[in-house]
């Protein structure tokens, strides 16, 4: 690994100004589980690294019936997976977090890091998309909030500007008559990357879909919402034929590539299979 200067600021302000001072050469370090691999292999050789670990208050999970779920950017995946609030109300997020690496990795990896890597295959992002997460971003210029849907630009690329830090995520409150689920297609049970990831959140009222959101991972340059499928489902009961239609629409909306893990055709086919399963499982949780 190449040598670098390590800064360990204790406030967001200090972190932002350190990033500003070091121009384009500084990298933010959260959990480090992805970054260190890249540094070791020489894929990235940062001159300066700004660790967020010493800033207090960035790793809290809070829930409020009016404002919803608030998770600090430095919250560990393991904490998200184990939070009873998230398991009960934002199940797909807990499931997504539990799919990241191993327990040892999840004790280091953070939610902010998983998002900011902007991997199309990130396990938490499909869930965050369906929960309509808002990202709170701080910098020397002030703070801004953007919906997670607008955050991703391409594989490994986000709209995060240099010097900006994702401090917190906020997901709106969950209606009582809703359920969610995340399914990851993989070969190994644990420690695999998502070949395809599908998250869904379903809200039922009087037997029909009052609201539904579907998030897809690893099947497009960025994590995406399967909005066409959502529109097909809304206002309908979850009959076999509606589910099939929606699943096909989700597959249609995906634009996967072929890579060493699997082919584009398989990915598209699995979006169809897993969308149906994810919706059924989400509805079953209501």
């Amino acid at each position: 690994m190449r040598d670098f200067a390590l800064f360990e600021p204790t406030t967001i302000e200090e972190a932002s100004s350190l990033l500003a001072e070091n121009g384009g050469k500084a990298t933010i370090l959260a959990g480090g589980t992805d970054l260190l691999v890249g540094w070791k292999e020489g894929i990235a050789t940062p001159k300066s690294v700004v660790s967020l670990a010493q800033i207090s208050g960035l790793d809290s999970i809070a829930y409020d019936e009016n404002t919803g779920l608030s998770i600090g950017g430095m919250t560990k995946m393991r904490a998200i997976e184990q939070s009873s609030t998230i398991r009960n109300r934002y199940t797909a997020l807990a499931e997504g977090a539990s799919e990241v690496g191993s327990i040892q990795i999840r004790n280091l990896a953070t939610l902010g890091g998983n998002i900011c890597n902007a991997s199309p295959a990130a396990d938490t992002v499909a869930a965050l998309l369906v929960f309509g997460a808002q990202l709170e971003i701080a910098s020397t210029y002030g703070e801004r909030t953007i919906p997670i849907r607008d955050f991703f630009v391409g594989p490994g690329e986000s709209s995060l500007q240099h010097g900006e830090i994702v401090t917190r995520l906020v997901c709106p409150p969950r209606p009582d008559n809703s359920g969610s689920h995340y399914i990851k297609q993989k070969i190994r049970e644990v420690m695999d990357l998502a070949f395809i990831g599908v998250a869904a959140s379903v809200e039922l009222a009087h037997g029909v879909v009052a609201d539904v959101k579907i998030g897809l991972a690893a099947v497009a340059p960025t994590p995406i919402r399967a909005t066409d499928a959502e529109n097909i489902l809304k206002g309908n009961s979850l009959s076999e034929s509606i589910l099939e239609q929606a699943a096909s629409a989700a597959a249609e909306q995906s634009s996967p590539i072929s890579d060493l893990r699997c082919s584009a055709e398989y990915r598209e086919d699995m979006v169809r299979v897993l969308t149906k399963r994810t919706i059924q499982a989400s509805a079953a949780r209501i």
Binding site: L6, E8, L29, G32, T33, L36, V37, K40, S51, A53, R78, G101, S102, I103, Q104, I105, N107, L108, M191
Partner: peptide
Amino acid sequence: STGDCGACTVTVDGKSVTSCLMLAAS
């Protein structure tokens, strides 16, 4: 050295981590 095998597992404040992916400074 990439966190994928677990041979370097130690506990830090009681929690298991892959010590190959944690900076000593952290």
